[in-house]
């Protein structure tokens, strides 16, 4: 009997002590903040313009940011977030995808010199501006792949970055790190892109890369003035009013290509 009594009394006493401390010293809880934070994707990609998910969540709570700035958040979580914050769900911009606008892999592009140094694009551009012939081409040393929070970028063995559209969430981290500025963010609805970023003259381009856009205007003639722009020797797709995917066949340089490989869904719709 005595041991039971002792344990009970001890338990009650300690519980009382805890209760008292909590009563007098407890810190206010932050339920909404925790809930908002739990909805964040946690990739800390910085695509929202804030320093990581936590920072964005704090900005949301302070009312300084709007839901929808985060591209990596799933639609379901976004809806929850809007409900939580008590704001009407705004029309969120169309999902984006990043595209490496360069076709200059080792089979097509010329290297001007052997680069000896740190294997990273950011380092390579510091040495004579990078050893790849075309100064607008992808260096293929993988700064973007290392920075991608979603593992969507593959560095091909022939030294060019390839973004897998189904993994990319359009956070834009690769866009800001790329020293050659060859990665562009485009709406997912755009079916084709010009895989070349060099505004150089025809002769100079051909000297360095056999897959460069030569500004032949065939695509523009085939699709119309407003769907494809030609700027000097470089064609670019009008992302607001893009041409459809069949246009790729007219490009003689094969640098106008589709972004997404035909997905299962698209294949199904074709079958129907």
């Amino acid at each position: 009997m005595y041991p039971v009594l002792l344990l009970t009394i001890l338990g009650v006493l300690l519980a009382l002590a805890i209760g008292l401390v909590v009563r007098y010293f407890d810190a206010p809880e932050d339920a909404q903040g925790d809930a908002v934070r739990s909805l964040m994707p946690g990739a800390n990609c910085g695509g929202c313009g804030f320093a990581g998910c936590n920072d964005y969540a704090s900005a949301l709570l302070r009312g300084e940011a709007k839901p929808g700035a985060c591209h990596a958040m799933s639609a379901e979580n976004l809806e929850k977030l809007c409900r939580l914050l008590g704001v009407a769900q705004e029309a969120v911009g169309e999902p984006l995808v990043a595209v490496v606008c360069c076709s200059g892999d080792d089979n097509h592009a010329v290297h001007r010199a052997f680069y000896n140094g740190v294997n990273d694009c950011l380092n390579a551009v510091l040495v004579a501006g990078g050893a790849k012939g075309c100064s607008y081409g992808c260096l293929g040393l993988g700064s973007c792949a290392r920075v991608c929070p979603f593992g969507a970028i593959e560095i091909r063995p022939d030294h060019i970055a390839k973004i897998h559209p189904n993994l990319c969430r359009g956070c834009g981290k690769c866009v800001s790190i790329c020293p050659r500025k060859v990665i562009k963010l485009v709406p997912r609805s755009v079916p084709v892109m010009v895989y070349c970023s060099s505004p150089n003259k025809f002769a100079m381009k051909k000297q360095f890369c056999s897959a460069a856009c030569i500004g032949c205007r065939k695509c523009q003639k085939a699709s119309g003035e407003d769907k494809i722009f030609i700027n000097g020797f470089l064609a670019s797709v009008n992302t607001e009013d893009p041409p459809d995917a069949s246009i790729v066949e007219v490009c003689p340089a094969k640098c106008l290509r589709t972004i997404c490989p035909p997905t299962a869904e698209a294949a199904e719709s074709v079958q129907k």
């Binding site: 344990l7 002590a17 805890i18 401390v21 810190a27």
Partner: peptide, 23 residues
């Protein structure tokens, strides 16, 4: 009873420390 009593005491102590720290 040593083990069980000690656990009780220590658990209560840590709880109190936690609350105080949070504050």
């Amino acid at each position: 009873l040593r083990t069980i009593v000690f656990i009780l005491v220590i658990a209560a102590l840590v709880q109190i420390v936690e609350v105080l720290l949070q504050r």
